[in-house]
Amino acid sequence: MRKTLGMAALAAVLAGGAQAQSTADEIAKYREMIADGNPAELFEMEGESLWKTPRGPKKATLEQCDLGQGPGVVDGAFARMPRYFADTGRVQDLESRLLTCMETLQGIPASAVVDGDWNKGERKTMDALAAYVVTHSRGQKIQLDLANPQTRRMYELGKRAFYYRSGPMDFSCSTCHGEDGKRIRLQDLPNLTHKEGAIAAWGSWPAYRVSNSQFWTMQHRLNDCFRQQRTAEPEFASEVTVALSVYMAATAQGGVLQTPGLKR
């Protein structure tokens, strides 16, 4: 009897493995099918019009926003971010840089986004703007300026944060993203410690999530990773989130961006 049970359990495990594999294939197939009509494009269109619409107390557009390639240059800007900006004296990712532009050009306080809620108000505006900017780096190579000492410092900080265990479950980012072949439910998790995995992750966020019809920026993605670890959620565009992005982007250096991505 006991032996029979053991065999049944083994059979179940084998079937489970096969099922997980075929489900991953099915998801890949599904993704391929709808990649043609990625609804992220709708956010991109909205972002483009927001970029050119005078807003905020100063009634200004973002067309003079300097994303590192000069004022108003959007093309290829995201492929070189996060980067060091001399005017703010900080290494900034796309979202934190957009915050700077909104504040300085339009007079919209950063707190409108930082203290806001996901998918609402100015944070939603941020989603659309990010969709617009990243689309203009699609197909380009990730090229971070790793010679810059400030970027190097953020890389080291990000690496430390990646392996730093905290919270009631004593998780770190590396618990889930430090080995090949891990998954949460049916979602395969990229191994962010090597180039291939980092390209898969950094190169496909921000993304449209089909399951909830939402567009998520990397800030949102990172925040949710912390929430899933049941640990303290980082502040929007805080130093640790930018540092983790630098670590990821640096590991993915040279890979091709597929942004905006499409997720389950």
Binding site: I34, D36, S213
Partner: peptide, 8 residues
Amino acid sequence: VSTNPYLS
């Protein structure tokens, strides 16, 4: 039909 429908 899903949110943000796609038709081809």
